[in-house]
Amino acid sequence: MISVKNLSHIYSNNDKLAINDISFEITKGETFGFLGPSGAGKSTTQGILTGLLKLQKGNVHVAGYNMNKVDNKRFNKIGVSFEQSNVYSKLTAKENLEFYRKLFDVPTREPEELIKLVGLEGKENDRAGSFSKGMKHRLTFARSMINNPELWFLDEPTTGLDPTIAATIKEIINGQKAKGVTTFLTTHNMYIADELCDRVAFIIDGQIKLIDTPKNLKLLYGKKLVDIEFIDNNEVKKETLKLIDDNDKKRMYEIINKYKIQTMHSKEATLEEIFIQVTGRGLI
């Protein structure tokens, strides 16, 4: 569904490469997570894949279209939800969707149904300008499904939403997945990635550090962490050590020999911890 080869991108007002020679493939029906801290290049990649940013260097094919020759008919098959919600504040929720659906040449979903789906029932006839940030975000998200896309781009779909609504969004994404929709999902929320994605890519400073399934990553890195709480000068300290790392191992012996241990247990690494292990950086 998506094939990216040696893609690089640079913004004209920025001398650093925003994307630095990345390559990956996404197969049909797959939910692909693009994970990385702020400024890693996630939105830039989505921008290029959706054609909002001009392809500068590399080979990109999306939904059967070569992105060198842009043909906007492809958007009949594509849905895009944006990081920053962008709806007409002067139009009501329903008018926003009614107008949008008319721009497509393919059968579209009913605005009311979508509004209900994202929990905005009863707000159909309120102007989007009166919506909270989260509500606008949900409307933007709902809008991205209006043309029953085969390929779905989601940039931070749950950011800024309260946990119940985030759970609803997750459910919707899972529902689409069950229908065979291919999803390119950008996030810095590892839990979302873990729960939704078939495969994830770790991106940092415009480069992909690894691509694998969450399950594989956990097998590789999981159960190999030890949390130790110990007392040093009447103070409780806590360290997390990797059992596969020689320095960490030495440190563990040192702690066991030197200090009074309070608790110590091994645990399965979260995707976030794995990210830190792999990239040496946090996700914030």
């Binding site: 054609g51 594509i78 895009v80 944006f82 504040s89 721009l103 497509f104």
Partner: peptide, 14 residues
């Protein structure tokens, strides 16, 4: 400012 121009850009409309 509202970014709606981007939303328009990802439709099959010219």
């Amino acid at each position: 400012g509202e970014g709606v121009i981007k939303a328009f850009a990802v439709t099959p409309s010219a």
